[in-house]
Design a protein around this nucleic acid. Structure first.
Lengths: 200, 200
DNA sequence: TCGTTTTTTACACGGTCGTGCGAGAATCAG
DNA sequence: CTGATTCTCGCACGACCGTGTAAAAAACGA
């Protein structure tokens, strides 16, 4: 019997190297050689786990999505439903260096997906998942009578929550908002959503 | 006296070729040669108007921003302030094929800016301009008593408007929302912002 | 027509790209 | 140890990259 390595684990390790390169050099810095160097393996070794560059990118894209999803699902709900929503949403936003890197990677893939239908397909799943998360959060708030009355249905409020979160994320990534301003805006949005009077 | 060409005009023409390549092949397709081919000139001719690839990209990025800005400033205000706001915001969103291309170009540059400080600096201006536009719109609505009472100040509402617009734009570009859904969401947001009761 | 200056082309250079491939290193049952 | 199998490396290939440059083409005053 020959040497056997865990293919799934190695593929995840190589995906992490892709993220590292994106975080350091941006989308333009991704190449088989740069990823190989970042991972510590030779470029030839990469080919044993990904037959093409496109495969590598698709996997790395899927992985960053799964990673966020898993982390959110691991969060435990506290007593205050609004605080729970806040915590969950902040988990997907660039509040610290780690999450900022993660967000910029996800966003870099998004731009790549504009010119690559395969990547776009992968990302569609991600957006659907995020929307469904927002919908569940809104419905949960509604069941607890924690929503302001605006006459909008849950689907509309969920799509808007999703848009606010991603919009603020983009603005923070672009340096248009600081992390603090982003969080402040999220809190103001949640205050309006839940009908909390502002403590002037 | 020799042949003289309008440098500014030629540079804008070449920037348009950059957009064309981005729209067709995405960020990964941009190269001196591909842009040259798209413009109909030789790659050597490009160098008479842009000394480096980075210069070309920075100019093309700045141009797409200026183009949107100019188009917005050209809009005339109608009687209904809410309809005016709606029209202005839609002017920046991917409602049709032309504007969709424009938006995807802008976001492709945004991703490029994550790994290129010079491009990021250019884009900061763009975001500031868009925010200031939103602020003016919100203040105009406030002066006409067309805002719902939520206790939020104009700056907060402007940042949120900006986030909603860009968030919906990203979702539409990614194919997560259709253009129609995007417009519907914008209208729902404006209804809540202005306190209009929903005609169930 | 000629001369001057700008514009444009065509090509060369070194480098990096994705990918293919063959040789050897590593691993472990027998 | 032997052999079978997996893993890893390093290099080669053709293509494309950004950039530089020399020469041709174009335009127009003189």
């Amino acid at each position: 019997m020959p040497k056997i390595v865990n293919h799934d684990q190695r593929r995840r390790e190589l995906a992490a190297a892709v993220w590292q390169v994106i975080a350091r050099d941006g989308v333009e810095g991704i190449s088989i050689r740069s990823v190989a160097a970042a991972s510590g393996w030779s470029s030839g070794a990469l080919r044993h786990y990904f037959s093409t560059r496109a495969d590598l990118l698709a996997f790395a894209c899927e992985q960053v999505i799964d990673q966020v999803t898993e982390r959110i699902q691991g969060l435990r709900h506290t007593g205050d439903p609004v605080k729970t929503v806040r915590a969950i949403l902040l988990e997907t936003m660039p509040v610290d260096e780690t999450r900022r890197t993660e967000s910029s990677i996800a966003f870099a893939f998004l731009a790549l997906g504009l010119g690559d239908p395969e990547l776009a397909r992968v990302q569609r799943r991600h957006f659907t998942g995020m929307y469904e998360l927002c919908l569940r959060l809104v419905q949960d708030l509604a069941e607890r009578d924690a929503l302001a009355q605006t006459g909008q249905d849950a689907e509309t409020l969920a799509r808007r929550m999703h848009a606010v979160v991603d919009g603020l994320t983009v603005h923070a990534l672009a340096g248009h908002l600081t992390a603090e301003e982003m969080v402040t805006q999220l809190d103001a949005y949640l205050a309006d959503l839940t009908g909390v009077e502002r403590t002037e």
